[in-house]
Protein backbone atom coordinates (compact mmCIF):
# COMPACT_ATOMS: atom_id res chain seq x y z
CA UNK A 1 0.00 0.00 0.00
CA UNK A 2 2.66 2.39 1.15
CA UNK A 3 4.76 1.62 -1.87
CA UNK A 4 2.00 2.34 -4.31
CA UNK A 5 1.37 5.81 -2.96
CA UNK A 6 5.06 6.56 -3.19
CA UNK A 7 5.17 5.35 -6.77
CA UNK A 8 2.30 7.56 -7.84
CA UNK A 9 4.02 10.60 -6.40
CA UNK A 10 7.35 10.12 -8.07
CA UNK A 11 8.48 7.46 -10.51
CA UNK A 12 12.04 7.44 -9.24
CA UNK A 13 10.92 6.90 -5.67
CA UNK A 14 10.77 9.25 -2.71
CA UNK A 15 13.77 9.36 -0.41
CA UNK A 16 12.37 8.41 2.97
CA UNK A 17 15.45 6.99 4.65
CA UNK A 18 17.27 9.63 6.66
CA UNK A 19 21.05 10.03 6.63
CA UNK A 20 21.64 10.82 2.97
CA UNK A 21 23.48 14.05 3.65
CA UNK A 22 25.64 12.55 6.38
CA UNK A 23 26.64 9.47 4.34
CA UNK A 24 27.26 11.52 1.22
CA UNK A 25 29.34 14.04 3.14
CA UNK A 26 31.56 11.49 4.84
CA UNK A 27 31.95 9.39 1.69
CA UNK A 28 32.92 12.32 -0.49
CA UNK A 29 35.18 13.90 2.10
CA UNK A 30 37.14 10.72 2.71
CA UNK A 31 37.28 9.73 -0.93
CA UNK A 32 38.41 13.22 -1.85
CA UNK A 33 41.13 13.70 0.72
CA UNK A 34 42.51 10.19 0.78
CA UNK A 35 42.29 9.17 -2.88
CA UNK A 36 41.22 11.81 -5.38
CA UNK A 37 43.32 14.78 -4.30
CA UNK A 38 46.55 12.75 -4.02
CA UNK A 39 45.74 11.16 -7.36
CA UNK A 40 45.19 14.57 -8.92
CA UNK A 41 48.77 15.49 -7.95
CA UNK A 42 50.09 13.12 -10.55
CA UNK A 43 48.17 14.98 -13.24
CA UNK A 44 49.21 18.35 -11.82
CA UNK A 45 52.88 17.48 -11.88
CA UNK A 46 52.54 15.83 -15.27
CA UNK A 47 51.04 19.02 -16.67
CA UNK A 48 54.23 20.85 -15.70
CA UNK A 49 56.19 18.61 -18.04
CA UNK A 50 56.68 19.75 -21.59
CA UNK A 51 55.41 17.40 -24.29
CA UNK A 52 58.90 16.82 -25.67
CA UNK A 53 60.32 16.00 -22.26
CA UNK A 54 57.43 13.63 -21.62
CA UNK A 55 57.91 11.84 -24.94
CA UNK A 56 61.65 11.72 -24.35
CA UNK A 57 61.16 9.81 -21.11
CA UNK A 58 58.46 7.40 -22.16
CA UNK A 59 60.03 6.50 -25.50
CA UNK A 60 63.49 5.87 -24.12
CA UNK A 61 64.70 2.33 -24.70
CA UNK A 62 64.74 1.38 -21.05
CA UNK A 63 61.21 2.60 -20.37
CA UNK A 64 59.69 1.04 -23.49
CA UNK A 65 61.30 -2.26 -22.58
CA UNK A 66 59.87 -1.87 -19.07
CA UNK A 67 56.36 -1.50 -20.45
CA UNK A 68 56.84 -4.42 -22.82
CA UNK A 69 58.10 -6.69 -20.04
CA UNK A 70 55.31 -5.69 -17.64
CA UNK A 71 52.54 -5.99 -20.20
CA UNK A 72 53.66 -9.20 -21.89
CA UNK A 73 54.42 -11.06 -18.66
CA UNK A 74 51.18 -9.87 -17.07
CA UNK A 75 49.25 -10.96 -20.16
CA UNK A 76 50.69 -14.47 -20.17
CA UNK A 77 50.25 -14.76 -16.43
CA UNK A 78 46.61 -13.71 -16.76
CA UNK A 79 46.10 -16.31 -19.53
CA UNK A 80 47.59 -19.05 -17.36
CA UNK A 81 45.41 -17.85 -14.50
CA UNK A 82 42.30 -17.83 -16.67
CA UNK A 83 42.86 -21.51 -17.59
CA UNK A 84 43.78 -22.74 -14.11
CA UNK A 85 41.35 -20.39 -12.40
CA UNK A 86 38.47 -21.75 -14.46
CA UNK A 87 39.58 -25.29 -13.68
CA UNK A 88 39.88 -24.55 -9.96
CA UNK A 89 36.50 -22.86 -9.84
CA UNK A 90 34.96 -25.83 -11.65
CA UNK A 91 36.53 -28.36 -9.31
CA UNK A 92 35.51 -26.37 -6.23
CA UNK A 93 31.91 -25.86 -7.32
CA UNK A 94 31.04 -29.12 -9.04
CA UNK A 95 32.97 -31.82 -7.24
CA UNK A 96 32.95 -33.12 -3.70
CA UNK A 97 36.22 -34.52 -2.45
CA UNK A 98 38.21 -34.62 0.79
CA UNK A 99 40.26 -31.49 1.36
CA UNK A 100 37.96 -29.29 -0.69
CA UNK A 101 37.56 -26.74 2.06
CA UNK A 102 41.32 -26.59 2.52
CA UNK A 103 41.77 -26.06 -1.19
CA UNK A 104 39.22 -23.27 -1.12
CA UNK A 105 41.07 -21.60 1.73
CA UNK A 106 44.51 -21.94 0.18
CA UNK A 107 43.39 -20.06 -2.93
CA UNK A 108 43.13 -16.91 -0.84
CA UNK A 109 46.76 -17.25 0.23
CA UNK A 110 48.15 -14.72 -2.29
CA UNK A 111 45.76 -12.12 -0.83
CA UNK A 112 46.93 -12.84 2.70
CA UNK A 113 50.64 -13.44 2.16
CA UNK A 114 52.67 -10.22 1.89
CA UNK A 115 54.04 -9.79 -1.61
CA UNK A 116 57.60 -9.31 -0.42
CA UNK A 117 57.52 -12.66 1.36
CA UNK A 118 56.08 -14.32 -1.73
CA UNK A 119 58.79 -12.62 -3.75
CA UNK A 120 61.76 -13.90 -1.79
CA UNK A 121 60.39 -17.39 -1.39
CA UNK A 122 59.52 -17.73 -5.10
CA UNK A 123 63.00 -16.48 -5.95
CA UNK A 124 64.51 -19.09 -3.66
CA UNK A 125 62.29 -21.82 -5.11
CA UNK A 126 63.04 -21.05 -8.75
CA UNK A 127 66.71 -20.06 -8.52
CA UNK A 128 69.34 -22.53 -9.75
CA UNK A 129 69.76 -23.93 -6.25
CA UNK A 130 66.06 -24.01 -5.38
CA UNK A 131 63.84 -27.09 -5.35
CA UNK A 132 62.13 -26.38 -8.66
CA UNK A 133 64.79 -24.20 -10.24
CA UNK A 134 67.36 -26.99 -9.90
CA UNK A 135 65.17 -29.38 -11.89
CA UNK A 136 64.90 -26.90 -14.72
CA UNK A 137 68.55 -25.96 -14.46
CA UNK A 138 69.47 -29.56 -15.31
CA UNK A 139 67.51 -29.14 -18.52
CA UNK A 140 69.37 -25.90 -19.10
CA UNK A 141 66.38 -23.68 -18.45
CA UNK A 142 66.77 -20.72 -16.16
CA UNK A 143 63.59 -19.41 -14.54
CA UNK A 144 64.59 -16.94 -11.86
CA UNK A 145 65.94 -13.63 -13.22
CA UNK A 146 64.19 -14.16 -16.59
CA UNK A 147 60.77 -13.22 -17.90
CA UNK A 148 59.55 -16.73 -17.06
CA UNK A 149 60.25 -15.95 -13.41
CA UNK A 150 58.37 -12.66 -13.62
CA UNK A 151 55.41 -14.47 -15.18
CA UNK A 152 55.38 -17.07 -12.39
CA UNK A 153 55.33 -14.36 -9.73
CA UNK A 154 52.42 -12.70 -11.53
CA UNK A 155 50.57 -16.03 -11.75
CA UNK A 156 50.99 -16.30 -7.99
CA UNK A 157 49.43 -12.92 -7.23
CA UNK A 158 46.69 -13.22 -9.86
CA UNK A 159 45.19 -16.65 -9.30
CA UNK A 160 42.58 -15.74 -6.64
CA UNK A 161 41.11 -13.03 -8.84
CA UNK A 162 39.99 -15.46 -11.54
CA UNK A 163 38.76 -18.16 -9.16
CA UNK A 164 36.76 -15.70 -7.06
CA UNK A 165 35.27 -14.09 -10.16
CA UNK A 166 34.13 -17.35 -11.77
CA UNK A 167 33.08 -19.30 -8.66
CA UNK A 168 29.85 -17.42 -7.77
CA UNK A 169 28.63 -17.41 -11.39
CA UNK A 170 29.28 -21.12 -11.74
CA UNK A 171 27.41 -21.77 -8.50
CA UNK A 172 24.36 -19.98 -9.82
CA UNK A 173 24.52 -21.58 -13.26
CA UNK A 174 21.47 -23.80 -13.67
CA UNK A 175 22.41 -27.37 -14.47
CA UNK A 176 19.23 -27.75 -16.50
CA UNK A 177 20.93 -26.12 -19.47
CA UNK A 178 23.71 -28.67 -19.41
CA UNK A 179 21.28 -31.51 -18.99
CA UNK A 180 19.18 -30.18 -21.83
CA UNK A 181 22.28 -29.91 -24.03
CA UNK A 182 23.26 -33.44 -23.17
CA UNK A 183 19.76 -34.76 -23.82
CA UNK A 184 19.78 -33.03 -27.17
CA UNK A 185 22.90 -34.99 -28.00
CA UNK A 186 25.77 -32.63 -27.31
CA UNK A 187 29.01 -34.20 -26.14
CA UNK A 188 31.03 -33.08 -23.17
CA UNK A 189 33.32 -30.79 -25.13
CA UNK A 190 30.44 -29.34 -27.11
CA UNK A 191 28.41 -28.72 -23.94
CA UNK A 192 31.35 -27.03 -22.31
CA UNK A 193 32.23 -24.72 -25.20
CA UNK A 194 28.72 -23.92 -26.37
CA UNK A 195 26.66 -23.94 -23.18
CA UNK A 196 28.83 -23.42 -20.11
CA UNK A 197 31.64 -21.22 -21.38
CA UNK A 198 29.44 -18.50 -22.90
CA UNK A 199 27.66 -18.16 -19.54
CA UNK A 200 30.93 -17.93 -17.66
CA UNK A 201 32.73 -15.74 -20.15
CA UNK A 202 31.90 -12.31 -18.67
CA UNK A 203 33.02 -13.45 -15.22
CA UNK A 204 36.09 -15.12 -16.63
CA UNK A 205 36.96 -11.96 -18.53
CA UNK A 206 36.50 -9.87 -15.40
CA UNK A 207 38.84 -12.19 -13.52
CA UNK A 208 41.31 -12.12 -16.40
CA UNK A 209 41.20 -8.32 -16.42
CA UNK A 210 41.74 -8.02 -12.67
CA UNK A 211 44.63 -10.49 -12.77
CA UNK A 212 46.10 -8.66 -15.78
CA UNK A 213 45.82 -5.27 -14.08
CA UNK A 214 47.28 -6.64 -10.87
CA UNK A 215 50.17 -8.15 -12.82
CA UNK A 216 50.96 -4.89 -14.60
CA UNK A 217 51.16 -2.99 -11.35
CA UNK A 218 52.72 -5.72 -9.23
CA UNK A 219 55.96 -4.79 -7.56
CA UNK A 220 56.71 -6.66 -4.34
CA UNK A 221 56.59 -10.24 -5.51
CA UNK A 222 58.14 -9.56 -8.92
CA UNK A 223 61.07 -7.35 -7.99
CA UNK A 224 63.07 -10.12 -6.31
CA UNK A 225 62.60 -12.82 -8.94
CA UNK A 226 63.07 -10.40 -11.86
CA UNK A 227 66.75 -9.77 -11.21
CA UNK A 228 66.23 -6.32 -12.75
CA UNK A 229 68.63 -6.66 -15.69
CA UNK A 230 68.39 -3.35 -17.64
CA UNK A 231 66.36 -3.60 -20.85
CA UNK A 232 65.60 -7.26 -20.16
CA UNK A 233 63.80 -7.96 -16.92
CA UNK A 234 63.08 -4.51 -15.54
CA UNK A 235 59.37 -4.04 -14.98
CA UNK A 236 57.69 -0.63 -15.32
CA UNK A 237 56.91 -0.14 -11.59
CA UNK A 238 60.57 -0.83 -10.83
CA UNK A 239 61.58 1.93 -13.27
CA UNK A 240 59.36 4.38 -11.37
CA UNK A 241 61.08 3.30 -8.19
CA UNK A 242 64.55 3.70 -9.70
CA UNK A 243 63.77 7.19 -10.97
CA UNK A 244 62.45 8.17 -7.54
CA UNK A 245 65.63 6.96 -5.89
CA UNK A 246 67.57 9.21 -8.28
CA UNK A 247 65.22 12.10 -7.37
CA UNK A 248 64.05 12.31 -11.01
CA UNK A 249 60.46 13.04 -10.04
CA UNK A 250 59.43 14.30 -13.46
CA UNK A 251 60.60 11.09 -15.15
CA UNK A 252 58.84 8.96 -12.55
CA UNK A 253 55.63 10.92 -13.09
CA UNK A 254 55.78 10.46 -16.84
CA UNK A 255 56.29 6.69 -16.56
CA UNK A 256 53.53 6.43 -13.97
CA UNK A 257 51.11 8.43 -16.08
CA UNK A 258 51.43 6.07 -19.03
CA UNK A 259 51.02 3.09 -16.71
CA UNK A 260 47.89 4.68 -15.22
CA UNK A 261 46.42 5.30 -18.65
CA UNK A 262 47.12 1.69 -19.65
CA UNK A 263 45.35 0.36 -16.53
CA UNK A 264 42.36 2.63 -17.04
CA UNK A 265 42.02 1.69 -20.71
CA UNK A 266 42.25 -1.96 -19.76
CA UNK A 267 39.52 -1.62 -17.14
CA UNK A 268 37.36 0.37 -19.55
CA UNK A 269 37.81 -2.22 -22.29
CA UNK A 270 36.94 -5.11 -20.01
CA UNK A 271 33.92 -3.32 -18.56
CA UNK A 272 32.57 -2.53 -22.00
CA UNK A 273 33.11 -6.08 -23.26
CA UNK A 274 31.26 -7.33 -20.20
CA UNK A 275 28.38 -4.94 -20.78
CA UNK A 276 28.25 -5.93 -24.44
CA UNK A 277 28.26 -9.63 -23.56
CA UNK A 278 25.47 -9.19 -21.04
CA UNK A 279 23.31 -7.37 -23.54
CA UNK A 280 24.02 -9.07 -26.84
CA UNK A 281 26.01 -12.17 -25.90
CA UNK A 282 23.04 -14.45 -26.34
CA UNK A 283 22.47 -13.35 -29.97
Amino acid sequence: MEQQIVKVKNKRGVRVIPGFGLSMGITLAMLGTLVLIPLASIFISASQLSWEAFLDVVTSRQVVSGYVVSLSCAFFAALVNAVFGLMLAWVLVRYEFPGKRLMDGIIELPFALPTAVAGISLTYLYSDRGWIGALFAQAGIQIAYTRAGITIAMVFVGIPFVVRAVQPVLEKLDRQYEEAAEMLGAGRICTFFRVILPELFPALLAGFGLAFARGIGEYGSVVFIAGNIPNKTQIAPLLIMTKLEQYKYADATAIALVLLVISFLLMLFINSVQLYMQRFGRG
Binding site: L31, V35, L36, I37, P38, L39, S41, I42, I44, S45, L210, A213, I216, G217, E218, Y219, G220, A236, P237, L238, I240, M241, L244, Y249, A252, T253, A256, L259, L260, S263, F264, L266, M267
Partner: peptide, 21 residues
Amino acid sequence: ALIDIPFSISPVIAGLVFILT
Protein backbone atom coordinates in the same frame (compact mmCIF):
# COMPACT_ATOMS: atom_id res chain seq x y z
CA ALA B 1 33.96 3.48 -10.05
CA LEU B 2 35.98 6.18 -8.27
CA ILE B 3 36.04 4.15 -5.06
CA ASP B 4 37.47 1.21 -6.99
CA ILE B 5 40.36 3.24 -8.43
CA PRO B 6 43.00 2.18 -5.88
CA PHE B 7 42.28 -1.43 -6.86
CA SER B 8 43.54 -1.02 -10.39
CA ILE B 9 46.51 1.20 -9.62
CA SER B 10 50.04 -0.07 -9.17
CA PRO B 11 51.07 0.20 -5.50
CA VAL B 12 54.22 2.00 -6.61
CA ILE B 13 52.05 4.71 -8.16
CA ALA B 14 50.01 4.85 -4.95
CA GLY B 15 53.19 5.74 -3.11
CA LEU B 16 54.26 8.15 -5.82
CA VAL B 17 51.07 10.23 -5.63
CA PHE B 18 51.77 11.01 -1.97
CA ILE B 19 55.32 12.05 -2.73
CA LEU B 20 53.98 14.33 -5.47
CA THR B 21 51.46 15.77 -3.01
